[in-house]
Write a protein that binds this DNA or RNA. Structure first.
Lengths: 257, 257
DNA sequence: CGCGGTCGTGTTGTATACAACAAACTCGCG
DNA sequence: CGCGAGTTTGTTGTATACAACACGACCGCG
């Protein structure tokens, strides 16, 4: 797929829903996930409003959501909620990956109970995606965007299959948070695609077999290993983007340009 | 309608945070979880505002949150978001219980990795809670409220122990949704406390043993069985409170009194 | 030169006003 | 008597105005 077109990393799938808070949310989230707004940067309602050409009302709604989903965190001890972009930390990696693993594990265990034909269809789709992924990760120069999307597509494929309303909702909150790390450290993760695609194969095989326990196990251990790899990468970087401490007020706290 | 405030099921833990949208959210959620607002009832911003004596602005924020968390669902095909209290369905039970199981399974697997002393402390707390639970479920007349709280406390106890920021956030979204069912069908679930407390014992033993896999397994199967029991109860009720269909417009759609 | 108090100033919380739209209703015409 | 077009009404989307409050700066006094 050639791509979201349009200029920046704006709205991706649908501008359709076009409700203002929704679009604001999407745009801001994208900026954060893609690392265009650094962790620790303070977000001020009016600045966002100005930047997107809307009033504070929709912005507030968007921010509230971003806070709840963990992209933004309340700052300081005020009773007023000032917020900043959430920092990246290895602790969060462990937690997020663990949760995603648990949830996808549940999803895949549901899938394992489907009919054989259904499972076969899914398995074939997954194989295709995994092949593309392997290809993309081998080609030079690397297309980070494509890798990003394929990676997402692979997992989304089977989650969608199992997901009801609730799972989908939670998953759509969690996944982008993980992607935030994938994006930021994406370039360094290249070397790690090899083991990842191999683990994908195990997941596919497990789905084919229809063994719930095995499928779940495959998914969970995939994410556990992925967590290990990611943490390794992060710690391997000397000048990391900083699980920054927030000292009372040394730095005048960067603001959203 | 008589009114404002008064005792009723107001704020429970803390009125402290007292920010208006937060309180509105809490109150409304309580009303829904406790079944005081029936599934399918349409919610109108201004009515809520009136009822709580605030303006639409904080109400909107509260509603947005309730929508995202699945307590309210968008109604009709409008591009405008009219909402109603989400219906209860056996499908949702399967999904919600499965997700909670997966997440708590993850939590408990983290706990299993803690030091022996730490685990022992947790285990003893859990035993105490479980004992109280058993007692409360045996005493007549039953104190539904107490059962409700003990049940919640038991699970919260070990989730808190393992939880970081993210898990806690998601869990606090999911748990009340489950509780909604527990509350609505609570009186009928009495007979089911026996097996439940027994399963709790297995969980406790697994935590003591420090075996991650075993602990996870105990928790997940607990929830799976609980789902089965709950679904059984729901289906056993002839005139159930209705996984109601929404026929275009037969009924003028009840409104929030 | 240091310290405390007072006054800005920035930012969020809340209310209100208005616009947009969809559904229901009414009225007139076939 | 039925059916459609205009009109009314209910409800949400968005903007704006104002209030509250925390923090920092400035100024004067010791």
């Amino acid at each position: 797929m050639t791509l979201p077109a349009a200029s920046e990393y704006e709205s991706e799938v649908q501008v359709i829903h076009g409700t203002l808070p929704e679009r604001t949310y999407q745009q801001l989230r994208n900026l954060i996930v893609r690392g265009r707004i650094a962790p620790g940067v303070r977000i001020v309602e009016e600045e966002v409003a100005l930047r997107f050409g809307v009033s504070r009302t929709p912005v507030r709604e968007a921010l509230a959501r971003l806070i709840q989903e963990g992209y933004l965190i309340p700052i300081a001890g005020n009773r007023r909620t000032e917020v900043a972009v959430a920092p990246l930390s290895t602790d969060s990696v462990g937690e997020l990956w663990g949760m995603i693993g648990a949830l996808e594990g549940y999803a895949v265990s549901v899938i394992a109970a489907l009919s054989a034909e259904r499972r076969e269809t899914i398995a074939m789709d997954l194989e295709s995606l995994n092949r593309q992924l392997r290809q993309a990760s081998a080609s030079r120069p690397r297309d980070a965007d494509k890798l990003f999307e394929l990676q997402a597509a692979f997992h989304q494929r089977f989650v969608d299959e199992a997901a009801g309303h609730h799972l989908l909702g939670i998953y759509s909150i969690l996944r982008p948070q993980v992607q935030r790390y994938e994006w930021v450290y994406g370039t360094r993760l290249d070397a790690e695609y090899e083991p990842s695609t191999n683990e994908h194969l195990k997941i596919i095989a497990a789905i084919r077999s229809g063994d719930r326990g095995k499928a779940r196990e495959a998914v969970e251990s995939h994410w556990e290993r992925a967590a290990g790899r990611t943490i390794g990468i992060i710690e391997g970087i000397a000048e990391r983007p900083a699980p920054r401490r927030r000292p009372s007020k040394p730095v005048p706290s960067k603001r959203l340009s």
